[in-house]
Structure formats: C-alpha cells, structure tokens
Design a protein around this nucleic acid. Structure first.
Lengths: 201, 201
DNA sequence: CGTCAAACCCCCCAAAAGGGGGGTGCGAAT
DNA sequence: ATTCGCACCCCCCTTTTGGGGGGTTTGACG
C-alpha cells in the first residue's frame, strides 16, 4: 500500500537475541521485503555494499566498535541507506547521531510497534530523534489536523472535500501528508495514532 | 458507501427549534436522501403514508399527543419505517417503547454525533435503547474484537486474513459485522468509536 | 531578493474496501 | 426440533483509497 516495492532492512547488532528479535519483528511486516543481519562492523559494511538496504538498524554498543562509526561506514558505501541508531542503556545526543549521518535514534525499550513505526517513518524520509519517547510533536499543519478530525468521523475524502470546500484531490494530498508525518499507512491507523497522541478530541 | 440509496427521514416534533435542528443536522449527512418534518400526529401520519420514510424520529412529548401513539400510528401506515423515540425530560421503559413498535429510544441531551449514529444504526437494523447513555455494550464477538484490533494497527483485510489464517472474504464479513454493531461506516470511524468505547488497548 | 512550505488544482493508475448475493457447519437456546 | 448467532468459504459489483506525476499562488523567513 505505501510500498510500491518492499523495503530492504539491515539489522546490525552483536547480540543474537536482539538481532533475531528485530528480524522476526520486521519480517512480519508486509512492507518489508527482506531483513538481513550483521554482527559486526565489517560484516555490516559488506552487506550494505551488496544489498543497498533502505534502512539499517544499528546498535550503539557494537562490542568494540561504535555504532556511530558503523553508521558513517555504511553510509559511505551505500549513501541511500537511512540509518536508525538504537541505544541499549547509553544515551547519545541527536547532534552526534546526525553528524554521523543517522536519520533517527531510538531506545531499545520502545515497544515493538513503535520501533516498527520508526523504521517506516525513516524509510519514508522523516527523522526520528527520541527525546522523551515516541511521537513527540508530529507537526501537523492546521489544515491537516482539520482533515484528520474528519477522517476520524468516518468521512470519505469526497465528504471532507465538501465540508472544507476543497477538491477531493487536495484532500488526498493532506491525507498523504498526515500518513507520512504520523508514520502510518492508512486512515484506520492514522486515527489510532492520532488518538494516542491526543490530536483528537 | 453504506447507502446504495440515501435514507429518507421524517422528524416529528412540535417544537420548531428541535425540529429544524434535527433536519439541519441530518440533511448534512451524505447518507440522508431527504429529511422532512411534521409538527403533530396527523401530519406525521400523512407524511409517513406518502413518503414511506426509512426512519422516523419522534418526540415523546408531542403536545397533546403521545409519542408512543404516533409511533404505532406511523408503523400502521408504513410498516417498514423504523421509529426512534426521543425523550426530552421524561423517561420511558424500553418495554413500552418496544411494544409501540419503536426500534430505539434516546435522550435529547445526547450529542449530535451520537444521535446521528443512532439514526444510522436503526436504519441498518440495530436497536438502540439507551439506559445509561450512548454505546453501552456493543456486543462484539471475540473474533470481531480481534479483527477490530488489527484494523486499528492499519492492517489491510488481506493482512488480517494472513494473521488469523482466514480468507480475506471472511475478514470482510467480520468487518461488516463490526461496522453494523458500532453504527459506523468504515475502518477509520470504527477505530475512533472503538477507542471511545474502550475496546482497544 | 530568492526560497521554502503550505495550500490549492489537474491528470493517471492499481489496489483495497465495502456491499450484494449465495453457501456450509456448529453449538446454544427456545 | 427449529431457530439463531457465530464462523467460515465462494462469486459478483462499484466506490474509495492511496500513490505517481504535473502545476499555481500565497505568505513567511532568511
């Protein structure tokens, strides 16, 4: 639905449990085409060079290696790969993560659904830098919030258009923007997400 | 979407404000084809006989006439018309309302959205008898709740089918049942409604 | 001054949704 | 003993959705 073609994901983590956990989690998503894993920096760079993954999930504590290093190394051999850094215990400043070329930074204790959503948002071009937790300030425009409210009432795009005196196509563009910003695929999930974020009454 | 053809609604109320309020409210709904009004019993019966409305909204306090009487009278001349009784202040037992042939009974201080929803639910064949308020115990089956939960994650019917080892078509029947029971037209509204009813985590 | 994002409009397309009809079997209730 | 809700399967159909292009204007911000 979002994905015209599935995403290729690379998981880099030296702990087998984490590593396989993510792979099982992501392989289950219909928009994930393939999900491979690497245990160390060298292996990760090889994979990245060959597979050109869309997203790389990199653990910050890569044994002897640093996650930030791995991030730079991967983006050197595969510049189109978006990197999502994952912290176990330690913290990292968004600035450091950004300068390493990462598109996002999350904590390992996020729920599975939120991690999955973060991967999707990054693949779609958003950045995810967690300060306090998932879903801080999504930054919908006024119009988008208005459309979102009508979506939640079950209105079709045509009805929304009639209500707001717009063309149905413009409404679709707003909905697309909403989905992108919320990291969501469709109306139903958008409503759920919006409720969780307190964007709806 | 729900309506292959729009609903015809008749509003019976001797207070002009209420009367027009409902008409304005309902005319705005895309699934309402026409919405006429009558001020008294006789007028109401005439309208019902000619227009054969799908739903009649009847005020309980019809001046000298009783709303329950009007209900019986209307269903005599137009048996397919579903009747929704509306109480201003007074209360009526569901038993009395049922024996008069009403499909539902609500209070005037319900929110606009809930009244609209009640009309739709009745038109779809459900009964709406308010005890404590709108949306008491919708009575989804286990399977339906399961499907609803997946809908809220943005899953498509095909994905739900894969997850629950069903055919996509069976999933669609569950979704239809969910929509009917919640008085809702589509996934987005179902998610919103379910949240409000506490059916989702 | 340019630039950028928001908001609006048009075209196209494939996929999904939603509703209609038909059917089966089960178990619980009347 | 028959009815009713639940769960499951098949066919058909139209509408809606979501994404892909392309474009304009406006107003804010540097």
């Amino acid at each position: 639905m979002t994905a015209t073609t599935g995403l290729r994901v690379l998981v880099v983590d030296d702990h087998d449990v984490v590593h396989w956990g993510f792979r099982l989690l992501l392989d289950r998503q219909s928009w994930v085409e393939s999900c491979d894993g690497a245990a160390g920096l060298q292996e990760a760079v090889e994979f990245a060079a060959n597979l050109r993954p869309d997203v790389a999930l990199i653990d910050l504590m890569l044994g002897a290696d640093s996650g930030a290093e791995a991030c730079s190394a991967i983006r050197e051999v595969s510049p189109n790969t978006k990197v999502l850094l994952i912290s176990g215990a330690g913290r990292i400043s968004p600035a450091v993560a950004r300068s390493a070329g990462a598109s996002g930074f999350i904590s390992k204790d996020w729920g599975a659904a939120d991690v999955v959503k973060a991967v999707r948002m990054i693949a779609l071009g958003s950045e995810v830098f967690a300060e306090g937790g998932p879903g801080d300030s999504v930054g919908l425009s006024d119009r988008e919030r208005e459309v979102l409210g009508l979506i939640a009432t079950g209105a079709t795009n045509r009805e929304i258009a009639g209500n707001l005196f717009l063309s149905p196509h413009t409404v679709k563009e707003h909905t697309s923007a909403i989905y992108r910003k919320l990291g969501v695929r469709n109306r139903a999930e958008a409503v759920r997400s919006a409720q969780g974020l307190g964007l709806l009454g």
